[in-house]
Nucleic acid binder design. Structure first.
Length: 206
DNA sequence: GACCAGGCACATC
DNA sequence: GATGTGCATGGT
């Protein structure tokens, strides 16, 4: 919590995860797997231009054409399949209705998502937190790097261990989890990269 | 021309 | 359970 307060004091609210709709956030969560957000934005933009950035639009597209639209996000063939699989799940279980999905108990939904091929823990948690406003903490490469570099966790720590570290010590508040993770990403992107020695890192020594 | 970026599945031991 | 590999574009 001290780290959170320090980061918030340094950078203020980040208003994070760009995306006009929950579905857009979910698509972004899959496309950004091991990929820079800039490349994902271009792919999202293409889908938008074609009016296909909605469950029906993706559902009707064939993998080939979908792959060429999302080419800029890398791994485009496998990601086209993953989007198709996810949207297939959305229609199969929830009739293609995000609102219906949102009404599901979220820890049970999390298990369902993890069962979908192409959705791992980070993607599932991003969908839940940033797409559906559920109180779950998202761990990503930035989070892991920052925690291990400051000696808060060991390098080999698992996803669950890192997630529990936050969730065991913080109130389960969606807004807090959202903001906290966003601040960690901001720190990772804008500070750690330029200062690998951590001299100017605001959370040094906390 | 390396190296990296908001992972995941799958094979193998 | 741990470790290794394929997937692919675009920026530095």
């Amino acid at each position: 919590m001290n780290i959170y307060r320090t980061l918030y004091g340094a950078y203020g609210p980040r208003h994070w995860w760009p995306g006009e709709t929950p579905f857009e956030v979910m698509v972004g969560a899959i496309l950004t797997q091991n990929t820079s957000w800039k490349n994902v934005e271009k792919a999202i933009q293409k889908l938008k231009e074609k009016g296909l950035l909605n469950p029906k639009g993706i559902h009707r597209l064939k993998p080939g054409p979908l792959a060429s639209l999302i080419r800029s996000s890398g791994y485009y063939r496998i990601k086209a399949e993953r989007l198709k699989t996810f949207v297939g799940f959305l229609f199969e279980q929830y009739g293609g209705d995000i609102k219906k999905m949102k009404r599901r108990k979220f820890m049970e939904l999390r298990e369902e998502l993890l069962g979908v091929n192409g959705i791992g823990p980070e993607t599932a948690d991003s969908i839940l937190l940033y797409g559906l406003q559920k109180p779950i903490f998202v761990v990503d490469a930035y989070t892991k790097r920052i925690l291990s570099r400051h000696g808060i966790i060991s390098e080999g720590a698992s996803y669950g261990e890192m997630q529990n570290l936050f969730m065991d010590h913080l109130p389960h508040d969606e807004k807090l989890f959202n903001e906290y993770h966003a601040l960690l990403v901001h720190l990772g992107k804008n500070v750690c990269k330029k200062n690998p020695e951590c001299d100017i890192c605001p959370i040094k020594g906390i």
